[in-house]
Simulated assay, not measured.
Amino acid sequence: MKLYLIRHGESVGNLEGKIQGSMDFPLSDLGKKQVDLISAYCKEIKLDYIYSSDLSRAHETAKKIGAATNLEVETWDKIREVYLGPLQGLTRDEIKEKYPITIKKSIITSGITGTESEKELTERCRVVLEQLKQAYSNESVALVSHGGFISILLMYIMAGDNWPSFHRPFVIGNTSVTLIEWPNGEEQPYLHYTNRTAHLDSLEAEQHAKKGIL
């Protein structure tokens, strides 16, 4: 199985600097441009199936990719963003002020009351991978999801249940693509690349030109 992990385009929440968690925010104007570019990029990838988080910023992204690749999009709540309870809708500075534990500890694994637990996240990752491997051993599948969940899923793939014990080093940019493969149904995966955003180069050049940099 080839597994493509694609983050949604920039959302209004991203633009406003808010920690979104499972709050629902639409794509920003820049996010819509990013989605057009990732959709064109995905035409060059041989995808067999597309699954999307049920949050609109991911689902809007997935629907555009589906239209470009002539594939139906299946909504899957198991790949939605981490639920962050009382932290949702706040900026990082506001969170650090209200919850000092987050100054030295990741928001996702802070253990703050009302947030999704490490155990719950581990179970979500386990279910997602087990179901995908059982159903699509020789196919290419795209999951259109979120930065937090994608980074945790990568950690789970590498470290299993012990993932919370390790530093999460992954940068997952808006509409970035990460590719993992289990060739011929093998148990051990291969990580081809993470956070690929070459499809955004033309957009970044356009933005710099507007600012007078080029």
Rank of each mutant, 00 (worst) to 15 (best):
Lys2Asn: 15
Leu3Gln: 05
Leu5Glu: 02
Ile6Arg: 02
Arg7Glu: 05
His8Arg: 08
Gly9Leu: 11
Glu10Asp: 01
Ser11Ala: 08
Gly13Leu: 13
Gly13Arg: 04
Leu15Cys: 07
Glu16Trp: 05
Gly17Thr: 05
Gly17Ile: 06
Gly17Cys: 03
Gln20Ser: 12
Gly21His: 06
Asp24His: 09
Leu27Val: 08
Asp29Trp: 02
Asp29Lys: 13
Asp29Ala: 12
Asp29Pro: 00
Asp29Gly: 01
Leu30Asn: 13
Gly31Phe: 07
Lys33Asp: 12
Gln34Thr: 04
Leu37Gln: 10
Ile38Lys: 00
Ala40Asp: 14
Glu44Pro: 00
Ile45Cys: 09
Lys46Ala: 12
Asp48Val: 02
Tyr49Pro: 00
Tyr51Glu: 05
Tyr51Ala: 01
Tyr51Pro: 06
Ser52Trp: 03
Ser56His: 04
Arg57Glu: 06
Glu60Gly: 01
Ile65Thr: 04
Glu72Asn: 15
Val73Lys: 10
Glu74Ile: 15
Thr75Phe: 13
Thr75Leu: 15
Trp76Pro: 04
Asp77Gly: 14
Lys78Tyr: 13
Tyr83Ala: 12
Tyr83Thr: 07
Gly85Lys: 04
Pro86Met: 04
Gly89Thr: 07
Gly89His: 13
Thr91Asn: 09
Thr91Arg: 11
Arg92Gln: 13
Arg92Asp: 14
Ile95Glu: 09
Pro100Tyr: 06
Ile101Leu: 14
Ile107Trp: 03
Ile107Asp: 10
Ile107Cys: 06
Ile108His: 11
Thr109Lys: 12
Ser110Asp: 10
Glu116His: 04
Glu118Ala: 15
Leu121Glu: 03
Thr122Trp: 03
Glu123Tyr: 07
Glu123Leu: 10
Arg124Pro: 05
Arg124Ser: 08
Arg126Gly: 02
Val128Ser: 03
Gln134Ser: 14
Gln134Thr: 14
Ala135Ile: 00
Ser137Thr: 13
Ser137Met: 10
Asn138Trp: 07
Ser140Asp: 12
Val141Pro: 04
Val141Trp: 09
Val144Gly: 12
Ser145Asn: 09
Gly147Ala: 07
Gly147Asp: 02
Ile150Lys: 06
Ile150Val: 13
Ser151Val: 00
Met155Tyr: 01
Asn162Lys: 15
Phe166Val: 14
Phe166Glu: 10
His167Glu: 08
His167Gly: 02
Arg168Thr: 12
Phe170Gly: 04
Gly173Phe: 04
Thr175Trp: 05
Thr178Tyr: 12
Leu179Thr: 07
Ile180Thr: 09
Trp182Glu: 08
Asn184Gln: 14
Glu187Phe: 09
Glu187Met: 10
Tyr193Val: 03
Tyr193Asp: 05
His199Ile: 02
His199Gly: 02
His199Ala: 01
Leu200Glu: 02
Leu203Asp: 02
Glu204Ala: 05
Lys210Cys: 01
Lys210Leu: 12
Gly212Tyr: 08
Leu214Cys: 05
Leu214Arg: 11
